[in-house]
């Protein structure tokens, strides 16, 4: 079980959080004309890297804030956690 440092609450066990996928995915702007490929890339296609990955987590059983986690997907090492408006 991972130990994740919520940027608002501090270190908590993984069972307080839910995973939210790749943090680098940006939703296309509303109303913008985009190709099928761009839309498919947003909805379906994800990299599945072995190693460093910037991802979203939601502190569901806590402060209910979404935040970013830089994690190694093979060792589970967490390098840093950030608020959404912070950059790595």
């Amino acid at each position: 079980m991972l130990e994740i440092k919520c940027p608002y609450c501090g270190k908590r066990s993984q069972n307080e959080f839910s995973y939210g996928g790749d943090a680098d995915i940006k939703r296309p702007e509303l109303g913008k004309e985009i190709s099928d490929k761009e839309w498919d890339d947003f909805v379906y296609f994800r990299k599945n890297p072995r190693g460093k990955h910037l991802e979203l987590w939601h502190h569901v059983a806590g402060c209910r804030q979404w935040f970013k986690v830089s994690r190694d997907t093979s060792t589970h090492e967490i390098f840093k956690t950030l608020k959404l408006n912070e950059e790595l």
């Binding site: 839910s18 939210g20 939703r27 979203l56 939601h58 569901v60 209910r64 804030q65 979404w66 959404l84």
Partner: peptide
């Protein structure tokens, strides 16, 4: 609720 929070915090802050 989690869906709404996601859009408010992550997509349209």
């Amino acid at each position: 609720l989690a869906h709404l929070e996601y859009y408010l915090q992550v997509v349209w802050p």
